[in-house]
Write a protein that binds this DNA or RNA. Structure first.
Length: 278
DNA sequence: GCCCAGGGAATCG
DNA sequence: CGATTCCATGGG
């Protein structure tokens, strides 16, 4: 019996860049341009051939309710790229990785993931999150779902030791506790102005400006958020000594293009490490 | 051994 | 107040 699938045409989109540009950490490449992952308790295998994107094993309802929003299919990226292209560096970034879309990730998963990301590198972030899901998440498809804040809040620090998250373990617990008990109400974040949303999230230990901006950009689709990490900091110093161009909006999308571009194409003269994996 | 990683908290002048 | 230092862990 043939498995059910949905196929769409999406010119200018890159599945691989979107799922592996450092915005999400749980997608696994299981074949040629084929990835498997979980969002909100739904398991998906998705693949790309040319302009065709194939979503395996999903119903129309699941596609419309879960995956179309997740992949931000209603947002027009062509007009954004047209704006960015007035800047020479961003124009190059668009040419290199303009197929990225900003995923509408689960707020809690994004928050927790970027707490783990601090002073860390992407391969190790993925490893910690993978162990977190295996140990505490519910089985889902061929993998395990991201554990709820309630499940994590019930854990002790010792129980998290196998994750090998280092000093971040206590931050993860604090986040889980404050989200679970309502000290930080994630359902109220969307209605808050940028600064207040940030301040709310920063009540959590281990959440500073950068992690808060990542949570807002990736978990709440606040495209005006602009996380400045070590890579973006270097890019700003090198390419934009007089400041990042104000017209380059939404800045969060520009930031994501720039981040992936400088990491993959122009590691830079003083690059910490070359990624030879592709 | 040294440096770094999608930083932030604690401590120090 | 700004500027260092420390934090765990793993790869290059």
């Amino acid at each position: 019996m043939p498995a059910q699938f949905i196929e769409i045409t999406l010119p200018g989109f890159s599945l691989a860049d979107t799922l592996d540009c450092g915005q999400a950490f749980r997608w696994k490449e299981t074949g040629e341009n084929t990835f498997s992952g979980i969002h909100r308790g739904h398991f998906l295998t998705v693949s790309q051939q040319g302009d065709r994107i194939r979503f395996d094993g999903v119903t129309e309802e699941e596609f419309a309710g879960i995956w179309a929003p997740y992949f931000d299919l209603d947002t027009d990226y062509d007009s954004m790229k047209a704006v960015f292209s007035a800047d020479p560096v961003l124009k190059e970034a668009c040419g290199f990785c303009g197929g990225i879309r900003l995923l509408r990730q689960d707020p809690w998963e994004a928050l927790c993931s970027f707490i783990i990301s601090q002073n860390n590198n992407i391969p190790r972030i993925k490893g910690i999150i993978d162990r977190l899901c295996r140990q505490l998440g519910e089985p889902c498809g061929e993998d395990f779902a991201f554990p709820s804040p309630e499940r994590l809040a019930a854990c002790s620090l010792e129980e998290l030791a196998p994750l090998r998250a280092g000093f971040r373990a206590k931050y993860i617990l604090d986040a889980a506790q404050k989200v679970a008990d309502g000290t930080v109400d994630l359902t109220k974040i969307p209605a808050l102005p940028m600064v207040e949303a940030r301040e709310s999230l920063m009540q959590i230990k281990g959440v500073g400006v950068k992690v808060a901006e990542c949570a807002l950009l990736y978990g709440f689709h606040r495209l005006d958020a602009f996380p400045v990490d070590t890579w973006i900091k270097k890019a700003l110093a090198e390419y934009y000594p007089d400041g990042f161009p104000a017209f380059a909006e939404p800045r969060g999308v520009a930031q994501q293009f720039l981040f992936h571009y400088i990491r993959q194409v122009r590691p830079g003269a003083n690059s910490p490490q070359q990624d030879t994996s592709r």
